[in-house]
Nucleic acid binder design. Structure first.
Lengths: 133, 133
DNA sequence: ATAGGTGCAAACAGTTTGCATGTAT
DNA sequence: ATACATGCAAACTGTTTGCACCTAT
């Protein structure tokens, strides 16, 4: 059987993918990671991005950010509990610090709430000021 | 050119699809709609479900409920502002009445919040009491 | 030398679309 | 009669996987 590797190797593609995600201060989609990482590693294939990002999620280095209907995005872990804002114009997703612990109490009695997600939709500062369209 | 139909027809499949969504008191995925509606219309094809649900959304009869990573679900419109709870065991999605208007204020200044979504994850009463597994 | 990693292409799942046929009006 | 709806299969998109080749260790 194949099994999970017992050891990770340092490769150019893995380094590029990590670098791209660390540099971005917002969650990136697989496509965004591919495009950005290809600047450092031109021949980079999309399968490698999927596999590497998947591995980084398993390692706990990355956390997936799922927003309905759209492809998953990934951000570096460990920035504490936070939520997200998605801009309708540029379609980028931003971090939103803070939370409302009361959300847990929205559920009707009988429902056991273990986790929650708050998503905000609107227009980001850049797009609102007409800067980058 | 093709264009949008100027008139809707009443067909068995459309009636079955509406009925299924009205009977469910929770959002249903395309697959769930197909399975349930096929009890009334055996030969029903999945393309018809996609097209009909899409049309019902355009008409405003249905509203899409998107939960990250999973196929979209649909519920009948007009039940007022509410959010959703997703059970980790049975994977069903339930309505959650109420809201926290303060969520709008989570966004950093400069961000224009136009809408929001709150998702709760956990275990529903059925699954929690060990009823249906 | 060898366990892992990479790129390519094939395989998949969910969704959309073209088209010949069926049917509500 | 005719415009709209349906079912099937093909086409697409995003994601996963098999495999021969490459490379960090």
């Amino acid at each position: 059987m194949k099994g999970v590797p017992v050891q990770r190797r340092h490769t150019r593609q893995r380094a590029a993918i990590r670098a791209v995600l660390e540099a971005a201060h917002r969650p990136l989609s697989i496509g965004e990671v591919l495009e950005l990482a290809q600047r450092a590693v031109p021949g980079l294939g999309i399968a490698t991005v999927y596999r590497t990002v998947g591995a980084l999620v398993e390692e706990g280095f990355l956390t997936g950010v799922e927003i309905g209907g759209e492809p998953a995005r990934y951000e570096v872990s460990g920035r504490g509990h936070h939520h997200h804002f998605r801009c309708r114009r540029c379609l980028r997703v931003f971090e939103v610090d803070g939370c409302l612990p009361e959300v847990q109490r929205l559920a009707p009695s009988g429902f056991l709430v273990e986790d929650h997600e708050i998503l905000l939709f609107g227009v980001c500062p850049d797009c609102n000021s007409g800067k980058k369209r």
